[in-house]
């Protein structure tokens, strides 16, 4: 139905229906709209369609703001409005759920030409978006039984090296160029957000404990150890990995401490036959 394509095009015009019709020099769009949609004395066809156009923009804008609260607070309402409008030009929603409309915002900010002015002014914005989307994804990522303290307690110490590990399906490990976790933490606490002033790589872990999403910054060594876990390493390999970087005495202690924390935080599940 051509009528649906026409309406979809006009409703998504970034400056609204009236502006799009004014810009269309030959007036073909206006004629097509007037012949397809009824207006009356109370309200013309373009005005009626504008109601849908406004609803389209603000519905998605509000959904993005809910998913990216720290980004919205850090760049301010004016820039966030612009961001939403520009983003929708390259990434209109393709998903049945409005909550997924912002899935590609980090990619847009990092790569797209339209985002260049935002990138220049807020070079850390793509990283904030990357973190905030990971938090969204973890919220309803698949459930799975995590490795529990009692599972580990059942294993004799001499067999620990064979313990297979995997990242829990809610957990995601990634590296950002800008230190933005503090910014999101301030936003979570409804405190003023302060943007980072210089780039500095940050390893981030995002995961869910029961129904609550958590995130924290990892040091280089723990990040590389968890990267081994993500590849399905046995605990013995984690210890070897630590031994390459720490004293002989410190490596097993560090390994045991990581395992204790990962299990407590429900970040790992058992591989190789554990529960």
């Amino acid at each position: 139905m051509r009528i649906q394509q026409l309406i979809s095009q006009l409703v998504r015009e970034p400056e609204g229906v009236a502006a799009a019709l004014r810009k269309d020099a030959g007036g073909a769009l206006a004629r097509e709209l007037e012949s397809a949609v009824c207006g009356n004395a109370r309200m013309g066809a373009a005005e009626r369609l504008e109601v849908y156009a406004n609803a389209y923009f603000f519905r998605i804008h509000d959904a993005l703001k809910e998913e990216y609260p720290a980004l919205a607070a850090a760049i301010g309402d004016g820039w966030f409005n612009d961001l939403a409008g520009l983003y929708l030009l390259d990434f209109p929603s393709r998903h049945p759920n409005l909550a997924n409309a912002g899935a590609k915002l980090a990619r847009f900010l990092a790569e797209h030409e339209r985002a260049a002015p935002l990138r220049q002014r807020f070079p850390w914005a793509a990283d904030v978006a990357r973190l905030e989307w990971a938090i969204q994804v973890a919220f309803d990522a698949p459930d799975a039984r995590p490795l529990r303290p009692e599972d580990v307690a059942r294993i004799p110490p001499e067999d620990w090296a064979d313990l297979g590990l995997a990242l829990h399906p809610t957990a995601e490990l990634f590296e950002l160029a800008w230190p933005v976790c503090a910014l999101r933490r301030a936003s979570d606490a409804e405190a003023p957000v302060v943007a980072p002033t210089s780039a500095a790589p940050e390893h981030v872990l995002v995961w869910r404990i029961d129904e609550r999403v958590s995130y924290r910054v990892l040091d280089d060594l723990e990040a590389s150890a968890l990267a081994c876990v993500a590849r399905g390493a046995r605990f013995g390999e984690i210890l070897e990995h630590a031994a390459e970087r720490l004293d002989d005495d410190a490596a097993p202690l560090q390994g045991a401490e990581w395992l204790r924390r990962w299990v407590t935080d429900q970040v790992v599940r058992g591989g190789g036959g554990i529960a």
């Binding site: 649906q4 394509q5 979809s8 998504r12 209109p92 929603s93």
Partner: peptide, 16 residues
């Protein structure tokens, strides 16, 4: 209809 050409308007658009 809520969208066309794989684009979701997230609104309840009336039918002809």
């Amino acid at each position: 209809w809520t969208g066309v050409e794989r684009t979701n308007l997230h609104d309840l658009m009336p039918m002809p």
